[in-house]
Nucleic acid binder design. Structure first.
Length: 431
RNA sequence: GCGGGCGUAGCCAAGUGGUUAAGGCAGCGGCUUGUGGCGCCGCCAUUCGGGGGUUCGAAUCCCCUCGCUCGCCCCA
């Protein structure tokens, strides 16, 4: 017996009945970006491994243990992108886009991380992201967040919470890191094993541990806010004031830390309680050091990414997702000459902008009507040999009780005109 | 990488050692070879994720394995 072929773990097929919410999100995002003057950029899925090591940071879990990395036939180390920002920054530097001024960019597409799948987390997952490059003002942080907030609002997603924090400047963070490590070292034995390990590699991430004992210990720890210099503090105040001015509600979360090394200052997440463990729909922040780190001129920047799977999950749960639309017309046809005419008619009707499902089965009229009904189409058009010989087509209403079955000339223009006019209770050709 | 739950048809699902594996939805064919929605009839798993074992006998018990799923971790 032949072994069954199936998709790789964590690689999900989106079947036709899954795609409507995705299409809705994509359309809403495009519209939101259009209004905000944000332009699309598309970068390759495959990049040199080096890009992510330098961009995201070797110490992060994403780079350390989650990347799809392999040698190509020329022995180059390649990696399927685990996130979008590094590639966008690489492309912007490579093509000198910043010489034309600050850039407002968006991207979308699949990302790859080798993790254990669970609700809202796949190995191939999809993000839509925004990047503002060359923008330093606190105002730009607020604008970036507002675009995400408005996009989610447009989609009708309820019960969202914006959580906000600042990571301070690189100096602030280095200073705080020392304070935190010094404090936690004194209580090392009270930490869970994960956190003990992170004490060496990435101590800030102990802050968002879910372990209650660790959290209790942290309530006595020095705070990141306490380590900020006056400039960083002032900057954060401006961001908060900007959000208030736009009436975007937020809560401060001093434990909010980003998992990728390039973030500084503003960090935020938009979460939903309806998503299970993977609650973050959108996450982002400022990354002023990244462009320089990847070989460009020092350039301030801020961005975010939102998770399509999680958003689609929310839209499906709340019932705001729709089904694929039914065709305008189902074309029933049977007989040697009729089948040829029907195909030609379907084609010209489609040129009039109508959606037409052509029955290709050659089955009995009864069967074809059964399928016409199930297609959800409002009208069935019947083309048989007897109609073709008289150059007519019969139109039969399937949904509208008030409408009557009638004959029209076998011409797309006549049919299109009839279907788009207001009153169809009378047929023009009826005696 | 670690832990829990679960694998019977395209989907939902009964069956917990006795040999023809219920039922429903969907699909296909017919009643109805040119008029749908309802109804009726028929067809649709040599087999219970896969492999091995126990037994006279296994979907049911044991072992291994694969997959799905939820959580930890991580993150969007």
């Amino acid at each position: 017996m032949v072994e069954k072929l199936q998709s790789l773990r964590g690689m999900v097929d989106l079947l036709p009945h899954h795609t409507p919410p995705w299409q809705r999100v994509e359309a809403a995002a495009r519209e939101q970006f259009r209004r905000a003057g944000v332009q699309e950029i598309r970068t390759p899925l495959l990049e040199a491994t080096e890009l992510f090591c330098r961009g995201i940071g070797e110490a992060t879990d994403v780079v350390g243990k989650e990347m799809y990395t392999f040698l190509d036939r020329g022995d180059r180390s390649c990696t399927l992108r685990p996130e979008g920002t590094a590639s966008v920054v690489r492309a912007v530097i490579q093509h000198g886009l910043l010489s034309q001024g600050p850039q407002r960019l968006w991207y979308g597409g699949p990302m790859f991380r080798y993790e254990r799948p669970q609700a809202g987390r796949q190995r191939q997952f999809h993000q839509i992201g925004l990047e503002f490059l060359g923008f330093a003002e606190a105002r730009s942080d607020v604008e970036a967040i507002a675009i995400a907030w408005d996009l989610l609002a447009d989609l009708g997603v309820q019960e969202l919470a914006l959580e906000l924090n600042t990571l301070g400047s690189n100096d602030d963070r280095a200073r705080y890191r020392d304070q935190l490590v010094a404090y936690l070292q004194q209580h090392r034995d009270q930490l869970d094993s994960d956190s003990q390990e992170r004490l060496e590699r990435n101590p800030l991430r102990i802050l968002d541990s879910k372990n209650p004992e660790t959290q209790a210990l942290l309530s006595e720890a020095p705070t990141l806010a306490g380590a900020l210099d006056s400039q960083s503090n002032e900057r954060f105040e401006q961001v908060k004031a900007g959000l208030k001015a736009l009436q975007i509600p937020f809560t401060l979360n001093p434990r909010l830390v980003r998992g990728l090394d390039y973030y500084s200052h503003t960090a935020f997440e938009i979460t939903s309680t309806k998503l299970g463990a993977q609650a973050t729909v959108c996450g982002g922040g400022r990354y002023d050091g990244l462009v320089e780190q990847l070989g460009g001129a020092p350039t301030p920047a801020i961005g975010w990414a939102l998770g399509m799977e999680r958003l689609a999950l929310l839209l499906t749960q709340t019932g705001t997702a729709q089904k694929h639309p039914a065709p305008d017309l189902y074309l029933v046809n049977r007989g040697p000459t009729a089948e040829t005419s029907a195909l030609a008619l379907a084609r010209s009707l489609r040129q009039f902008g109508l959606s037409v499902e052509l029955d290709a089965s050659g089955a009995s009229f009864g069967k074809q009507f059964k399928r016409a009904d199930r297609s959800g189409a409002a009208w069935a058009a019947i083309v048989g040999d007897s109609e073709v010989s008289r150059s007519v087509v019969r139109l039969k209403p399937l949904r509208d009780e008030a409408a009557v079955e009638c004959e029209l000339p076998l011409e797309a223009a006549a049919i299109s005109g009839f279907l788009t006019r207001e009153d169809r209770s009378l047929c023009p050709l009826d005696p």
